[in-house]
Amino acid sequence: MNFNSMIKKNKSRIINIWLKKFTDTYSEQSGKFFRDNQGQFSNPVGYTFRVNMEKIFDELFLENDQEKMSEYVDGITRIRAVQGFPPSVSVSFVPMLRESIWEVCGREIAREGMHQEWLELNVKFEELMQLAFDTYMSCRELLWKQRADFLHTRTHKLLERAGFITRAGK
C-alpha cells in the first residue's frame, strides 16, 4: 500500500484523535462540549473545527491548492485568535495533526520504511504552519485595526474638534 492511501485509510481515526488533542487545550467541560455536540449552530466552534480539519486533511493529499487551504486554516485560526490563547497554542492544530498521524500510522511508516514520504509530508506541515501563523497574525491585526478605528471614528473626531461633545462631570 502506498503512503498516502495508508494514511487516508485511517482518516476518521486520525481526525478524531486530532480533534481530541486540539479541544483538550480547553477546560474539560468545554473541550467535551466542543467535541461532542454535533450541532452546526448550537456548537459553531466544534463544528467549524471538525469540518475544516477534515478539509485540511483531504487537501493535504490532493493538489494542495493554496487558496482552499488558506480558507480552511482560516476557519480554525480565526476562532482561536479571539479565544485568549498564546499564539503558539492558537495554531497548535498543525503540529497536532502531525502527532495524530504519527500516533495512528507511525508504526507502519517505520515498518514499511516510508521515511522519505514522511519527510515530504513534514514539509507540507511546515507550509501549513506558516499559513496558520500568517492567518493568525492577520486576524490579530484586524482586531487591533478595529480597535484603532473605533477610537478614531471620524465623526467623533470632527465633533470633538468642533467642541460639540462635552463630557458629563467635567
Binding site: 454535533q38 450541532g39 452546526q40 449552530f41 448550537s42 469540518v51
Partner: peptide, 14 residues
C-alpha cells in the same frame, strides 16, 4: 431542538 446541516446540504433534525 437542533438542526444540523451536513456538508451534503441536507438538513437533519436531531
Amino acid at each position: 431542538t437542533r438542526v444540523e446541516l451536513h456538508p451534503g446540504q441536507y438538513i437533519a433534525y436531531s
